[in-house]
């Protein structure tokens, strides 16, 4: 494997966003790119990252390899990069280590680190292609604020999507709260748009603790996409350049 990423910062942000959910992960490398799929210990949330080969320049992966990496170790090494550094990931066949080289674009500084790999026997989930009943795009910062605000009142949020808009509501010991968003187009600042694409009304309840955790990815993308269908896991997607993405799935809470 040899994969050069124009911005080391991208991988750093991904790792920062997921490392509280999952600890040891396989980075599956093949000629289409670098993918990661891991569930949290409680089997409630799943992280699915895809960094397509187009996100790298150049990208070369001659044989499929799984790089088992402890994310805390990876985070420590990625913190050694300067924010504008270029990152090259390298691994040999049947590797013991993954090699990370940070290059400064405007100086001759070159730093190099090896991280020891681990054997990770990971359960892999097959995620069916789903036509969701509701697809909502909104500013990622807005979603983060809603989740944080409602978590002050309750452990859970009900997300209801109708043709009127999307309503996030909660009930807790001190009282209740809700935030409703309607479709909204801002021509000057499209990152502020709220787009609701609905085929049938949806109402689902989710744990706010996990949603707040997902929102650590807000720095990766100005917009977040929420995809919902009744009685299936929620998909929270942060789109990255070149069709790469960071996705989170969260199992719903369903009435007893």
């Amino acid at each position: 494997l040899e994969a050069r990423l124009e911005q080391a910062n991208l991988l750093k942000k991904v790792v920062d966003a997921i490392k509280d959910l999952v600890q040891d992960c396989n980075f599956d490398c093949n000629d289409s790119g670098i993918a990661l799929q891991a569930m949290d210990n409680s089997h409630v949330a799943l992280v699915s990252m895809m960094l397509k080969s187009e996100s790298f320049s150049p990208f070369r992966c001659d044989r499929n390899i799984a790089l088992g990496i402890n994310l805390t170790s990876l985070q420590k090494v990625l913190r050694c990069a300067n924010s504008e550094d270029i990152l090259t990931l390298k691994a040999e066949d049947a590797p013991d280590v993954v090699n990370l080289v940070f290059e400064s674009a405007d100086s001759d500084r070159l730093s190099e680190y090896d991280i020891k790999l681990m054997d990770i026997d990971q359960e892999h989930l097959g995620i069916p292609e789903t036509e969701y009943a509701a697809n909502i795009s909104m500013p990622s910062a807005e979603f983060q604020k809603i989740c944080r605000d409602l978590m002050a009142l309750s452990e859970s949020v009900a997300i209801e999507c109708t043709k009127e808009g999307v309503k996030f509501s909660c009930n807790g010991d001190i009282g209740s709260g809700s935030v409703t968003l309607r479709s909204h187009t801002n021509v000057d600042k499209p990152e502020n748009n709220v787009e609701i694409d609905l085929t049938e009304p949806v109402a689902l309840t989710f744990s706010l603790k996990y949603l707040v955790n997902f929102c650590k990815a807000s720095g990766l993308s100005g917009q977040v996409k929420l995809c919902l269908s009744n009685e299936v896991p929620l998909l929270v997607e942060y789109g990255l350049a070149s069709n790469s993405y960071l996705r989170f799935y969260l199992a719903p809470k369903i009435g007893d």
Partner: peptide, 14 residues
Amino acid sequence: TPVQNDLTEFFVMV
């Protein structure tokens, strides 16, 4: 109160 479901109830292990 609603109960937290497990993801493996929806997605199959492969």
